[in-house]
Amino acid sequence: MIRARLLLAVPLLLLALSARAVTGPDEMLADPELEARARALGKELRCLVCQNQSIDDSDAPLARDLRRIVREQLVAGASEAEIKRFLVERYGEFVLLKPPVSPATWLLWAGPFLMAAAGAALVWTFVRARSVRPEEVTELTAEERQALERLLEGGSGERTR
């Protein structure tokens, strides 16, 4: 059926888009191990022009330049941490797609856990409030029972709630 085919075509098209390699063959390193490290590092670095893509994903000229710098430095023997430091010195921590835990970012990292804790606390207070109230109400003292009976007998259609 046409609809079934369409349903299949959309994810396949998306897959094809995501699989498209931006890194050109002229950029790739001859050493497959170094190239793999360069690709992995490129995925962690933000393209400053497009901002929500990694330099590994981006076609922007600046992303290409940064990919080249990453490869040059890897060939020269630099570690991943050294290359990241090189870029952070120039572009700030924004260049790292995964921000490090620092005084400026702890809220970002702790945020989801704080929200979950706040939600749990809210649920707990509501559940507790509901489970407590009926017990208090059901236990009537002898005086109250008498008062209630008086009201029920003497009440002429008055609401007694």
Partner: peptide, 13 residues
């Protein structure tokens, strides 16, 4: 010409 100096300045456009 290569844009290398600009990268040292943190230029992105």
């Amino acid at each position: 010409r290569e844009g290398r100096a600009a990268i040292d300045w943190g230029v992105y456009g």
